[in-house]
């Protein structure tokens, strides 16, 4: 019986290791056939921004890995609208994450669901296991 797992990502991608090590849990966890969702709130929304370039800080740019999440059946990615707006960002600033729907002729569908803070509260309420990073 699959459980509803939610990974909440709250930190900017490179200031601390939380974002990278959260992604590592998500990738390993994908092998367990659970019902997985990700949420990006606060500075966590920066993790999904496109055009990241880490050359000057000497760290590995792991942002391309988010593009592969669809292949791991991780395709419910909630982004909090207010968090984007508070940082002067919009969906246009984020990577276009998609997944292929096997049940619908492998149609490419958007993984990102833009939700309000209030809507995200309801999503969190439905979860059984919440890991926050």
């Amino acid at each position: 019986m699959a459980k509803k797992f939610m990974y909440i990502n709250r930190k900017a991608p490179y200031g601390t290791v939380y974002a990278l090590e959260s992604l590592e849990v998500v990738l390993i966890g994908a092998a367990f056939d659970q019902d997985v969702s990700l949420a990006f709130i606060g500075d966590g929304v920066y993790q999904l921004t496109k055009g990241q370039n880490t050359k000057a800080i000497g760290q590995k740019n792991f942002s391309p890995v988010y593009m592969a999440l669809g292949d791991y059946d991780v395709n419910k990615i909630y982004v909090e609208k207010e968090s984007l707006e508070e940082r002067g960002l919009s969906l246009e600033d984020l990577q276009h994450l998609v997944w292929e729907d096997e049940d619908n002729d492998y149609e490419e569908k958007d993984s990102i669901r833009l939700v309000s803070r209030a809507e995200l509260t309801d999503v969190l309420d439905e979860q059984e296991v919440i890991l926050s990073f």
């Binding site: 459980k3 590592e24 849990v25 966890g29 659970q34 890991l131």
Partner: peptide, 10 residues
């Protein structure tokens, strides 16, 4: 490994 964390959640 990290699988132990997922299993702990399950």
């Amino acid at each position: 490994g990290l699988g132990q964390l997922i299993e702990a959640g399950i």
